[in-house]
Amino acid sequence: MTAADTVLNVSHLSLSSSVQKNLVSDVSFSIAPGECLGLVGESGSGKTITLRSILGILPPGIVLTGGSIEKHGSCAMIFQNPVSALDPLCPVVSQLVEVIRCHQKMSRESALVQADELLRMLDLPVSLERLDRYPGQLSGGQCQRIMIAIALACRPDLLLCDEPTTALDVTVQKQIIAVLRNLQHTLEFSMLFVTHNLAVASALCTSLCVMKQGTVVEKGDTKSVLSRPQTEYTKLLIRSVLPVPECGKEE
């Protein structure tokens, strides 16, 4: 794959802090247009800081010590906890309109029209268009939809998702996954999806990258990684997905 037909190309990325050398070492992956790459691993495996380094928002004290990140196009990010990612003192549609105006340089009126369109696309209550509400007055799932709307308002070529469904209930998680899948289909952006849940990753991602203690231990397309895991660690992660029997089926 040449650099021209990738949206993101991360090669030999290394990140360190003063306390711990090699938080992430020699991580390489690339994302093609329309592809969804899942970054899977447990806490402390370096998923989130890899994601943050792509957007250039590393926490203070962590520095890039090697490798390169090539972006071809714009990026937007969705965070784990939607309630804390939104400004609690500003009504949600105003936040959305602000982002649209800032990124697309348009008037308030046309920004509102586009905001309405995004709200409808994400199945948010239409009442929001007339009566704007604060993040605290919405449910967690609704806040996450607003975050997705804000991220999409930048018309990104690449959407970075940092455990977007971990703070949500299973029923809401299912809706958000469906929303992301549909939007990706219609708007044709690429996704980098960070999660610790292999089942969620398998529902969304076309390829997987398994991380452990700052290194990539296995990568490949989702089906082959899950059906023929090569490393012990991937096998362990797969074993850790607790089974739930299918409704209405006998064993």
């Binding site: 299973v170 029923t171 089942a199 398998s202 529902a203 209405g248």
Partner: peptide
């Protein structure tokens, strides 16, 4: 296997599964 209420069925169907 055989949940009795609609809500239980919704919960069970929402569990992400590995394909």
């Amino acid at each position: 296997r055989h949940p009795e209420t609609e809500y239980s069925r919704l919960l069970l169907s929402s569990v992400p599964r590995m394909e």
